[in-house]
C-alpha cells in the first residue's frame, strides 16, 4: 500500500514526469519536424507543471494578502510560480523561433523529414 500512498502524495510530480516522457518519446522517434517541435513543447509544459507543483503544500491557499484571512503560515510558496512565468515566456520565444526556422527549412529542402536534412555531416 505504501507506494500507492506515495503516488497519491506526489501525484503532481508523477503527472509532470509522465508528460516529459511523452514529449521525449515524440522528440526521439518522430521524424517529422513539426511533431518534434510539439514534443519539445510537451516537455516544456511538463517541466512547468513540475516547477509549479514544487511550491504546492496540501491544504493551503494562494498567498494573496489582500483579504485578511490569508497569513504566510497557511499559504503556499509563491517563488516557483514566479520561476514558471519566466520559463513559459522562454518556451514561447523558442517555439516561435523554431517554427519560423522550420518554415524556412521547408521552403529550402522541400521536406520536413529530419533524417533528410543532413547536408552538413561528419
Amino acid at each position: 500500500m505504501s507506494w500507492v500512498e506515495t503516488v497519491y502524495n506526489y501525484s503532481y510530480f508523477v503527472g509532470a514526469f509522465g508528460l516529459i516522457m511523452i514529449g521525449l518519446y515524440a522528440v526521439m522517434v518522430k521524424t517529422n519536424l513539426i511533431k518534434i517541435l510539439i514534443g519539445i513543447n510537451l516537455i516544456d509544459v511538463g517541466v512547468n507543471i513540475f516547477l509549479v507543483s514544487l511550491g504546492y503544500i496540501k491544504g493551503k491557499g494562494a498567498p494573496i494578502f489582500s483579504n485578511a484571512s490569508v497569513t504566510p503560515a497557511n499559504s503556499i510558496d509563491p517563488i516557483p510560480q514566479a520561476l514558471v512565468l519566466t520559463a513559459i515566456v522562454i518556451g514561447v520565444a523558442v517555439t516561435a523561433l523554431s517554427l519560423s526556422v522550420i518554415i524556412k527549412l521547408y521552403q529550402h529542402y522541400k521536406t520536413l523529414d529530419i533524417s533528410k536534412i543532413r547536408e552538413m555531416r561528419w
Binding site: L33, S98, V101, Y109
Partner: peptide
C-alpha cells in the same frame, strides 16, 4: 537554417 534547427533542438533539451 539546418544548423540553427539542430541547435534549437538540442538547446531546448
Amino acid at each position: 537554417l539546418e544548423a540553427s534547427m539542430k541547435y534549437i533542438l538540442i538547446g531546448s533539451l
